[in-house]
């Protein structure tokens, strides 16, 4: 484990904590896309099928369980929590996400490391994660004003992706035969989706003003 990978995992964890904090402290999920959260729940469940077959480390297993449990808990809150669900921006969260699931699965059937159930689902989860943020970004764009915790949530998610790219560059340079085409290319695509958001995030941070996305 190198420092970039650890920083990536920690910012990922932090993003989830910020989101849970927002929901818990404000009893509101306004500005959060339930569709993105549902996609993440699918991503983690599809990717971590290896929990049943491989053991890598206590850290690895623990993090996998955290990601699955937290994404399911967030989706549960947004759908069923008597107070939280009322603040869900249903009319803004209209991205047709079944298209993303279908396209990711189709791509996984074509491009995978091995044609086994586990490997196809792993590739599917990588492709789906790359685009899972789209409903969230569209929702933010539509609502214009972004509250602090929601802005920080998306910022930490983007930081997690950026650190993973640094991690791959580091591993590519230090480990013999390290190549990860599927994860690498998808990871670059995923990180690029955050570029626009980052731009406005840094401007608002520099000016010490509220984050606003142009319509």
């Amino acid at each position: 484990m190198n420092i970039f990978r650890l920083a990536g995992d920690m910012t990922h964890l932090l993003s989830i904590l910020v989101l849970l904090l927002k929901i818990y402290a404000t009893k509101s999920c306004s500005g959060i896309s339930r569709k993105t959260q549902e996609l993440y729940a699918i991503v983690f469940m599809a990717r971590y099928l290896d929990l049943f077959t491989d053991f890598i480390s206590v850290y690895n297993t623990f993090m996998k369980l955290i990601f699955i449990a937290s994404s399911l808990a967030i989706v549960w809150c947004m759908r069923f929590h008597p107070v939280v669900r009322r603040s869900y921006d249903r009319e803004l969260d209209t991205f047709r996400y079944f298209f993303l699931v279908g396209a990711s699965f189709a791509l996984a059937l074509v491009w995978h490391d091995k044609f086994t159930l586990q490997e196809v689902f792993w590739a599917f989860s990588i492709y789906l994660e790359a685009v899972a943020i789209l409903p969230q970004l569209v929702l933010l764009q539509r609502s214009g004003n972004v509250d602090n915790l929601t802005g920080q949530y998306v910022f930490f998610l983007g930081a997690y992706r950026a650190f993973y790219i640094l991690n791959w560059i580091y591993r590519y340079m230090t480990e013999p035969r390290f190549t990860r085409w599927i994860a690498g290319i998808s990871g670059v695509v995923q990180t690029a989706l955050y570029a626009d958001f980052f731009y406005y995030y840094f401007i608002s941070w520099k000016n010490n003003s509220k984050l606003k996305l142009p319509a």
Binding site: D54, I56, N60, K64, D113, A183
Partner: peptide, 10 residues
């Protein structure tokens, strides 16, 4: 020499 691409990342 072929090394299995272990899925050790999250």
């Amino acid at each position: 020499l072929k090394v299995k691409n272990v899925k050790d990342e999250l």
